[in-house]
Structures are given as C-alpha cells and as structure tokens.
Simulated scan of single mutants.
Amino acid sequence: MIIVTVPGISESALARLIEHVEAAGLRTHVSRGEHRTIVGCIGDEGLLSDHGLTQLEGVERVLPVLKPYKLASREFSVQSTAIRLGDAADTVIGGRDLVVIAGPCSVEGREMMHETAHAVQRSGARLLRAGAFKPRSSPYAFQGMGEEGLKILAEVRAETGMPIVTEVMDTRQVELVASYADVLQIGARNMQNFPLLTEVGRTQRPVLLKRGLSATITELLMAAEYIMAQGNGDVILCERGIRTYETATRNTLDVAAIPVLKRETHLPVMVDPSHAGGRAHLVAPLAMAAVAAGADGLIVEVHPHPATAKSDGEQSLEPSAFASMMQQVRSVALAVGREPSWEVELASV
C-alpha cells in the first residue's frame, strides 16, 4: 500500500508515520514530490490493518497497490527516476536529454576499443558499451576476454571520460565486474536469473536490465523488483525485441512496450535497436521509432570493422553509419520534446 501525506507535512510527523509503519514489521520507501510525499509500505500489509493509519497526523489517504511489483510501480514514486552517471554526474538517464550508449558487442582488443570509443563519442554517445564476458549460443564461439577486457575498458574510460556499461553473467563475477564497470548489464538470457538479480541489487551500481526473449512486461518489472528489493533503485529497463514467429528480423521490437512501461513504472526505459533488428540497415529506423515512442535512450552496437567482428558483426554499425543515425535520431528527439545534447557534423566524422 501507499500512504499519501497532506501537502507540507512536517518532518516530525513524517518521522512518526515511518516509525509507526516499521514498528508493525514493514519496510518503508519515501518518495518526495514538490507538494506531496508518498510513503510506500513493503511487506505483509495485514499487519497494518488495525493500526488506524488514516488517523495519524499528516496522512491524507491510504491506497492499495494492486500491481505485483511495488517498488518499480509508478504509484510508489512521485517523480520519474533519473540516474546520474560519470565523475561529474553530468550524464542523466531518465531526464530531458536523450542518452545514447554505443560500442562493440565485445571487447576484442585495446586498439579497436580506443578507436571505437573516440568515434562514438565524437558522434554524441555518452556511455561506452562492450562485453568482457559474452553469453553465446555456441560453447565454441568467442566468449570474451574476461578480466583483461575489463582492464581495457577501464583504460578507455580514463582516456575518454565515458562511463562503462558491461554485462555480468554469473553471481561469481559480480564483485569483479562491479569493481570496473559504471553500469552492470543483465542480458536477456539472465532476466529471470533471480540469484544474479539479487546480487547486483546489493552492489548499489546502476543496472541495465534487458527484457527476456519471451518475457511479458510484468515479468520484466518483477525482475526489476528483485534488484530494487535489495535497496538498489537505479534500474534502467531495456526493450531489445522479443522472439516471435517472424524471421525477417532477429527479434521483433515491441515499440508498444515503451509507452506501456512509461505509464507503469517510474524507471527509465532504453531501447536496443541492434538486437531487435539484427541487421545494420534496420538499426536507424528502429532507433527513430523508439525515440518517437518515448524511450529515454538507446544502446547501439558500433564496430570499426563489422565484417571482422568476433560477435554480432551483422548488426553493428560502422562509425560513419552511427554518425548518420545520430543525426536522424536527434531530429526525431527534438520533434518529440527531448533535449539531445549532441550535434553531428557528418563531414568531420
């Protein structure tokens, strides 16, 4: 349930209200808005049934939360969640800016990572993505460079200032990956790996949570709830296409999921057009559709030489194609009221 307080509730009255709820055995989550403060109650709500909440000072009304996800529900937060990243915390995911994360599918070497990072940064990307550990359908395919890949990513971050997004696949990797990465990515195959979700929730690192191949929106939000239940509210949801009967694309981008999620949750929503389309020529159109539908950002695969990429080369953009996409995306973003912070001069790329 949520407790809606009266406008301008005093700090002492709010403290007594929180103490009252927690004394009954529930946890509280406080969300402060410009005019009102909401207190979310997490636990067995039956413990509060006889406590006369509406009689307490500062309580305006008590409302049930009918959704199975509580912390992720928009009802639990007065304002949309904005996640700040970078040394100066000047990159905000979930604000007015449209944030683009870009880079190769996997770390393949020092030189290519430096080349890619500088290229995508020139075109407006704010964060760098690349996998040091890679989940592959075949056990014989390239599995990533492991910790050596993480070290390369840290070198590139030191040089460019770009925060790093990289995937963690196993509970045994969480501590290691978190010591290098700025954002921990949970891939589609691990969306319902509940021990892993619990573990990344304990790190207090922002988490980019990708929707599972056949997951419903409710299942995605329940996965986010596992992370948030550990006290980590910095969760970024990522729609990356779902598996359908269609074979013309790698997956089917669920564009409708974007406005549904924006209505259901206060968490920021990003879109991965690379995995959705599976082919480079589809990335820009899908990216523009995602922005038009309300996405807070994009995560795009970019490789300096896609033909020789060790993974996902077919869906990776060359730097020049990425620059062109960023120019197109910027136009759409401005048209729908976003404030993209980059400008692209194609001749200089």
Rank of each mutant, 00 (worst) to 15 (best):
V4I: 15
T5N: 10
S10V: 09
S12V: 10
L17Y: 13
V21S: 06
V21F: 05
R32V: 14
E34P: 03
T37S: 13
G40M: 05
L48F: 09
L48I: 05
G52R: 15
T54I: 14
Q55M: 15
E57P: 15
P64D: 15
P64Y: 13
V65F: 03
P68M: 11
L71A: 04
L71Q: 03
R74V: 08
E75P: 01
R84E: 12
A89P: 01
D97N: 12
D97R: 10
V99H: 05
I101L: 01
I101D: 01
E108Q: 09
S123L: 13
S123F: 13
S123T: 06
G124S: 05
A125Q: 05
A132G: 15
F133M: 03
A141K: 11
G144A: 13
G149Y: 02
L153E: 12
L153N: 11
P163M: 07
I164K: 01
T166R: 08
V168N: 05
M169L: 15
M169F: 14
R172S: 14
E175R: 13
A181I: 10
V183M: 04
I186C: 01
A188V: 06
M191R: 01
F194K: 06
K210G: 04
R211P: 03
G212W: 08
M222E: 11
A224C: 10
G233S: 13
V235D: 07
I236Y: 04
T244Y: 03
A248M: 07
L253K: 02
E264I: 07
S274I: 04
H275D: 06
A280T: 07
L286S: 13
A290H: 11
A290G: 08
D296I: 03
V300H: 00
V302F: 02
P304Q: 01
T308K: 08
A309E: 01
S311E: 00
A321Y: 05
F322V: 05
M326E: 00
G337E: 05
R338P: 12
S341V: 03
W342C: 09
